[in-house]
């Protein structure tokens, strides 16, 4: 159990249970009911400050806790596979290449699906996971955030919205994946690659110059 100094939020998230014929009803229930806990600080998600902590189970049932990842560089990638801006990055394999390149350098890449069922545009976790896998996601973890708790803690506004947290747990980048607000894959080549630049800089233990940009994409529906 975690001891958090500030607010707790416990939410049920749906877990995709991989085929495990030996799972009893009780085990399935335990796997299904999980707690997402986050600490909401007054200045959530501010570059230069400690990134809001959270813990959740990923698609494989593995516990992911930001505070436990200290010592690693972490990327948070907000996704919606039906958003044309996300399709630009996944259809072209740009996102998967970034995931592959940086996880190979020891970065922990967390892809998050935030949204509320009530919004009518919600992608349920099973679909989110299936689509991510079909597209060859190379993320370290896929996290379903149906309550939107993690998204709200970071004020994730659109998809894609990218955050980089350095090895000390400080938010080093908050913003767009690149500089060209378009749905056209032809625009990838000429765009300034903010996320790659931020990651290269943080991995080299240097301060990020372009640390905050306006993210583009489809609204996250809380």
């Amino acid at each position: 159990m975690c001891d958090l100094p500030t607010q707790h939020k416990h939410n049920v998230i749906q877990q995709q249970t991989k085929s495990t014929p030996m799972m009893t009803a009780k085990n399935m229930f335990t796997a299904m009911v999980s707690a997402i806990s986050i600490s909401i600080s007054a200045n959530a998600a501010e570059v230069g400050k400690a990134a809001p902590d959270f813990s959740a189970k990923d698609a494989k049932g593995v516990d992911v806790s930001l505070s436990a990842l200290k010592g690693k560089v972490v990327v948070l990638e907000w996704v919606n596979h039906e958003c044309p801006f996300v399709v630009k990055h996944y259809g072209s394999k740009n996102m998967q290449k970034l995931q592959q390149t940086y996880t190979a350098k020891g970065v922990v890449w967390i892809t998050i699906n935030s949204g509320s069922k009530a919004s009518g545009s919600y992608t349920d976790d099973a679909t989110f996971i299936k689509m991510s896998e079909e597209k060859g996601s190379k993320a370290s973890h896929l996290i379903g955030d149906e309550s939107g708790a993690i998204g709200k803690a970071y004020d994730a506004k659109v998809t894609p919205h990218m955050f980089v947290i350095d090895a000390k747990g400080v938010l080093a980048y908050n913003g767009a994946i690149d500089s060209k607000k378009s749905t056209d894959t032809a625009d990838l080549a000429g765009a300034e690659n903010y996320i790659a630049k931020a990651l290269d800089t943080v991995l080299a233990d240097k301060p990020v110059e372009t640390a905050k940009t306006e993210p583009y994409g489809c609204g996250v529906k809380y």
Binding site: C83, P84, S182, T183, D184
Partner: peptide
């Protein structure tokens, strides 16, 4: 011509 149209459920290019 390229554009984006959105409603409260999502966006379509």
């Amino acid at each position: 011509l390229s554009w984006l149209a959105c409603n409260d459920k999502g966006c379509v290019p």
